[in-house]
Design a protein around this nucleic acid. Sequence first.
DNA 1: TGTGTTGTTTGATTGTTATCGAACTGTCGT
DNA 2: ACGACAGTTCGATAACAATCAAACAACACA
Lengths: 83, 83
Amino acid sequence: MAKALSDPRRVALLEAIGTADEYPCQRLCTEFPVSKGTISHHMKELLRAGLIRSRQEGQYKFFKVCRDTIAAYTNELMRRLAV
Amino acid sequence: MAKALSDPRRVALLEAIGTADEYPCQRLCTEFPVSKGTISHHMKELLRAGLIRSRQEGQYKFFKVCRDTIAAYTNELMRRLAV
DNA sequence: TGTGTTGTTTGATTGTTATCGAACTGTCGT
DNA sequence: ACGACAGTTCGATAACAATCAAACAACACA
């Protein structure tokens, strides 16, 4: 999780996805100056970390931020460092 | 900050420091199976990120977790992702 | 003043990761 | 069935990060 959040580009992607309830993959490809392959790679990482979920609709793919996972992470961080 | 928190060893060091109000550098060196150089490197990163502060006392050095910085980070994360 | 201890810096090595382009897979509309 | 579009996967490359060992600097004490 921390690893997934450590790349600025990935966080930017995550933030973009967070601006809407659901965010189309294709829009990420147009709005970020990176190749499709790279987007796909980052999405895979975010999925693996449980930070987003995806939904397929025909040939399109939509992403959604898992806000509870993020909340769980921040809580864990606070707990571990006893703030 | 996120970068600083993305390395497991560094988080472990941070946690160790967090177990006491102040933690001597030398104890980190004895309790973690890494060289002095590596410890020094990680401390530099944690300092740079504002996650710890250090205090010199003669030839010894002590570290202290900056809990408010961590709180600020988690808050920022929550805010940015509108949880 | 010298010796041991503490921590920093440096250079080399090694592993990881972000990125691209290209090849590939799957889905849609015609 | 075919051509266009959406994503994935792969191979290569380049940048970065963790680590060590060794050289170094600073301090303490005898």
